[in-house]
Design a protein around this nucleic acid. Structure first.
Length: 229
DNA sequence: AGGAATGATTGTGC
DNA sequence: GCACAATCATTCCT
């Protein structure tokens, strides 16, 4: 049931209207509108998705046909056998039931593998990591300035994040990502520097308040950021 | 070409 | 829900 829902949601198992371009059209309509380059970026994705859809439907049809053929074949056999021994309608019904269950389990496997294919396709095309672009120098400068001038507590509030996002031309979640990455990498940098000097400082807490880190902006630590000279 | 840097995602814990 | 940590995938630098 879950597989059915997912395939339906992805437009793979939707109602088949003629050539099967209904799903692609629906996807285009859904992703279209404001994002002008979105549909262009996703056209390859949609093409692959409709390919999956086509394979899925032909396979499904094949299985259905095979199931029907096999059922009539078995029915014929039973009919032949009924000449030599009595066969109750119940027995025939039971036989048909078994065949249908077998074939529906095969269909289940088909659905599962189609789901997997869609998932892989999604991760290949829709994963933002694949189209990552570095922020421009100015944006990085602004973020770094905030970070190093709030080194004692580099956790911008929601409003501050919005402000930074607006200034940098990025989204709030990108700001959050940036600060998450920055905090952890900054801490790591400090940690490796301290172990280099042989000072085994406790690493279980954030070290943003340690005196050597409060050199202001730009600090010695800031200069360790090789992007900014 | 290969490693470092970097933005994004995923899993985990609180 | 957020922060952290590990990891991925891409970009940048040498």
């Amino acid at each position: 049931m879950r597989l059915d829902n997912m395939l339906l949601a992805e437009g793979v198992a939707g109602p088949e209207k003629g050539g099967g371009s209904a799903a692609a059209a629906a996807a285009a309509a859904a992703s279209g509108g404001a994002g002008s380059d979105n549909s262009v970026e996703h056209s390859d994705y949609r093409a692959k998705l409709s390919q999956i859809r086509q394979i899925y439907h032909t396979e499904l049809e094949k299985y259905e046909q095979a199931c029907n053929e096999f059922t009539t074949h078995v029915m014929n056999l039973l009919r032949e056998q009924s000449r030599t021994r009595p066969i109750s309608p119940k027995e025939i019904e039971r036989m048909v039931g078994i065949i249908h269950r077998k074939f529906s389990s095969i269909q289940m496997q088909l659905k599962q593998s189609t789901c997997e294919a869609v998932m892989i396709l999604r991760s290949r095309f829709l994963d933002a990591r694949r189209k990552r672009r570095n922020f421009n120098k100015q944006a990085t400068e602004i973020l770094n300035e905030y970070f190093y001038s709030h080194l004692s507590n580099p956790y911008p509030s929601e409003e501050a994040k919005e402000e930074l996002a607006k200034k940098c031309g990025i989204t709030v979640s990108q700001v959050s990502n940036w600060f998450g990455n920055k905090r952890i990498r900054y801490k790591k940098n400090i940690g490796s520097k301290q172990t280099e000097r042989g000072a085994m400082a406790p690493q279980n807490k954030m070290q943003f308040l340690s005196p050597q880190n409060l050199g202001g902006y730009p600090s010695p630590c800031y200069q360790s950021d090789r992007r900014i000279q």
